[in-house]
Amino acid sequence: MSDTQLTVTLSGGGIDDARAVVRALEGVFGAPDDLPADERATVRTATFRASAAPEAAPAPSVDAGRLSAPVTVTVQGSPQAVAAASETLTRAFSTREEGAASGDQEQERQLLLVP
């Protein structure tokens, strides 16, 4: 498979919460292009690139740390990438699905992560 991109948009919580979410996804997608860094931002993004179809993290839950506040996460990419990201985040945090949209070759899913 050609390069797969996953775009993650985070709102709510602080910079440490955003970094905890990114750390949870690194086990599946590798390091993002950039870590969320602006402490004053209200919306943060991270982009992951994988050279093969991602698979969800192994069965044990990911220890990404605790969140200090609810975080809304939108993941967008190929169906495989979105499914792997959603499953990984569900294992790492308490989650609630807030919505989903599908296109021809991309999907988008919104999750609410709660402390």
Results as ranks from 00 to 15, higher is better:
Ala37Gln: 06
Ala37Val: 04
Asp38His: 07
Asp38Gly: 03
Asp38Val: 08
Glu39Tyr: 07
Glu39Val: 07
Glu39Ala: 13
Arg40Val: 02
Arg40Pro: 01
Arg40Glu: 12
Arg40Ile: 03
Ala41Ile: 03
Thr42Val: 15
Thr42Pro: 00
Thr42Asp: 14
Thr42Tyr: 10
Thr42Lys: 09
Thr42Cys: 00
Val43Leu: 02
Arg44Leu: 07
Arg44Met: 07
Arg44Phe: 02
Thr45Tyr: 00
Thr45Glu: 11
Thr45Val: 05
Thr45Ile: 04
Thr45Met: 04
Ala46Ile: 04
Ala46Asn: 09
Ala46Leu: 02
Ala46Glu: 03
Thr47Ala: 11
Thr47Phe: 01
Thr47Asp: 08
Thr47Ile: 12
Thr47Val: 15
Thr47Met: 04
Phe48Ala: 05
Phe48Met: 03
Arg49Ser: 04
Arg49Pro: 00
Arg49Asp: 01
Ala50Thr: 15
Ala50Tyr: 06
Ala50Gly: 14
Ala50Pro: 00
Ala50Trp: 06
Ala50Met: 13
Ser51Tyr: 01
Ser51Thr: 04
Ser51Gln: 05
Ala52Thr: 15
Ala52Phe: 13
Ala52Tyr: 11
Ala52Leu: 13
Ala53Gln: 09
Ala53Cys: 00
Ala53Tyr: 00
Pro54Asp: 12
Pro54Gln: 10
Glu55Met: 13
Glu55Lys: 15
Glu55Arg: 15
Glu55Leu: 15
Ala56Thr: 15
Ala56Arg: 14
Ala56Leu: 08
Ala57Leu: 11
Ala57Arg: 10
Ala57Glu: 11
Pro58Gly: 06
Pro58Val: 04
Pro58Gln: 06
Ala59Ser: 14
Ala59Leu: 15
Ala59Thr: 13
Pro60Met: 10
Pro60Cys: 12
Pro60His: 10
Pro60Asn: 10
Pro60Glu: 11
Pro60Trp: 05
Pro60Lys: 08
Ser61Met: 01
Ser61Arg: 14
Ser61Thr: 03
Ser61Pro: 10
Val62Gln: 03
Val62Met: 04
Val62Tyr: 02
Val62Asn: 02
Val62His: 01
Val62Phe: 08
Asp63Lys: 10
Asp63Pro: 15
Asp63Ile: 11
Asp63Met: 12
Asp63His: 12
Asp63Thr: 13
Asp63Trp: 11
Asp63Val: 15
Asp63Tyr: 06
Ala64Ser: 06
Ala64Trp: 04
Ala64Met: 01
Gly65His: 03
Gly65Cys: 09
Arg66Ala: 15
Arg66Ser: 12
Arg66Pro: 01
Arg66Cys: 01
Arg66Asn: 04
Arg66Phe: 04
Arg66His: 08
Leu67Lys: 05
Leu67Thr: 05
Leu67Phe: 10
Leu67Tyr: 06
Leu67Asn: 05
